[in-house]
Deep mutational scan, measured.
Amino acid sequence: TFVEFNGKKVEYPTPEAAEKAAKKLAKKLNLKVTKKNGNYKLE
C-alpha cells in the first residue's frame, strides 16, 4: 500500500500501517488524505 505526498511515494507493508502513516503525515503537513485504488494520497 502506497502513501503519496509531495511527489514522493512511500510503500508500507500493510494497509493499516499506510493508513496510520497517512493520517499522521496529513496532520503534520496540514493536508487531507484521499484514498484511491487502495492507496493514500495527501493533498
Rank of each mutant, 00 (worst) to 15 (best):
T14F: 04
G38R: 05
K28C: 12
K27I: 11
K24C: 11
Y12W: 05
E11H: 14
E4V: 08
K35A: 08
P15F: 05
A22W: 02
G38V: 02
A21N: 04
N6A: 11
K20I: 12
L42A: 02
K23P: 00
G38K: 05
G38Y: 03
A22T: 03
A26N: 02
V10G: 03
N39S: 12
T1N: 12
A26C: 05
K27A: 13
T1Q: 05
Y12M: 03
P15W: 09
V3M: 04
Y40T: 02
N30P: 02
F2P: 00
F2W: 14
V3K: 00
G38F: 04
V10W: 15
L31Y: 04
L25V: 06
E19T: 05
L29D: 03
L25P: 01
T1F: 15
A18R: 00
F2L: 08
K23W: 14
V33W: 07
A17Q: 11
V10T: 12
Y40A: 02
K8D: 06
T1A: 12
N39T: 12
Y12C: 04
N39I: 14
E19M: 10
K24H: 13
E19R: 11
F5H: 06
N6C: 13
L31P: 00
G7A: 05
T1H: 13
T14I: 03
T14E: 04
A22S: 04
K9A: 10
L29I: 03
A21D: 04
P15Y: 05
K24V: 12
N6H: 12
F5E: 01
T34M: 09
L42W: 01
F5R: 02
V10Y: 14
P15N: 09
V3I: 08
V33F: 06
L29V: 03
K23G: 08
K35D: 06
G7R: 05
N39F: 09
N30C: 06
V10E: 07
K32A: 08
T14M: 03
A18L: 01
G7S: 05
K20G: 07
E43I: 13
N6L: 14
T1S: 12
E11M: 15
K27Q: 13
K27Y: 10
P13E: 09
K32G: 05
E4S: 07
E16P: 03
A21P: 00
A26H: 02
Y40G: 02
L29G: 04
A26Q: 03
Y12H: 04
V3A: 00
N37Q: 08
N6R: 11
N39M: 12
K35M: 15
G38Q: 05
V3E: 01
Y40M: 04
A26R: 02
E16L: 10
K23A: 12
G7T: 04
E11D: 06
L31Q: 04
G7E: 05
K41N: 08
T34D: 05
E43W: 11
G38T: 03
A18M: 00
K28L: 14
F5V: 07
A22R: 01
K27G: 08
L29F: 15
E19L: 14
E4I: 12
K41T: 14
P13F: 07
A21R: 03
V3Q: 00
F5S: 02
G7V: 01
E4H: 06
K24L: 14
L42F: 04
E16H: 10
Y12S: 00
K9T: 11
K28A: 13
E11F: 15
K20R: 14
G38W: 02
K20A: 13
A21Q: 05
V10K: 13
T1V: 14
Y40P: 02
T34K: 06
K27N: 11
K36S: 14
L42P: 02
L25R: 02
A17T: 07
V3H: 00
A26V: 03
V3D: 00
T1I: 13
L29T: 04
V33D: 00
F2G: 03
T34L: 10
L25F: 07
Y12T: 00
K8V: 13
K8H: 14
N37I: 03
G7D: 07
N30L: 06
E11Y: 15
K28M: 13
K41I: 15
L25K: 04
L25C: 09
N39K: 05
A22C: 01
N39A: 11
L29P: 02
G38M: 04
E43A: 07
K9M: 12
L29Y: 15
E43D: 08
K8A: 09
N30H: 13
K35I: 15
K23E: 11
T34I: 14
K27P: 02
E16S: 08
K27W: 09
K36C: 10
L31G: 02
E4M: 08
K41G: 05
K41V: 15
E4G: 02
K41C: 11
Y40F: 13
K41H: 15
L31V: 06
K23M: 15
K20W: 11
K36Y: 15
V10I: 14
N30F: 07
V33Q: 02
A18N: 00
K32P: 03
E11Q: 13
G38I: 01
A26S: 06
L25N: 02
F5G: 01
K9S: 11
L25S: 01
F2T: 11
K23D: 08
E19W: 15
K41D: 04
T14Q: 03
A22Y: 02
V33S: 02
G7M: 05
N37S: 07
P15D: 12
K24E: 15
K8G: 07
T14K: 03
K9F: 14
K20T: 11
Y12L: 02
P15M: 11
E16Q: 13
L42S: 01
K23C: 14
L25Y: 05
K24A: 15
A18K: 00
L31D: 01
L31S: 03
K9N: 09
F5M: 06
K20P: 00
F2E: 04
E16K: 10
K9I: 14
T34E: 08
L31I: 05
T1R: 08
K20Q: 13
K32N: 08
K35R: 11
F5P: 00
Y40I: 10
A21Y: 08
A21E: 06
A18T: 02
K35F: 15
V33T: 04
A26Y: 01
V10M: 12
E43M: 09
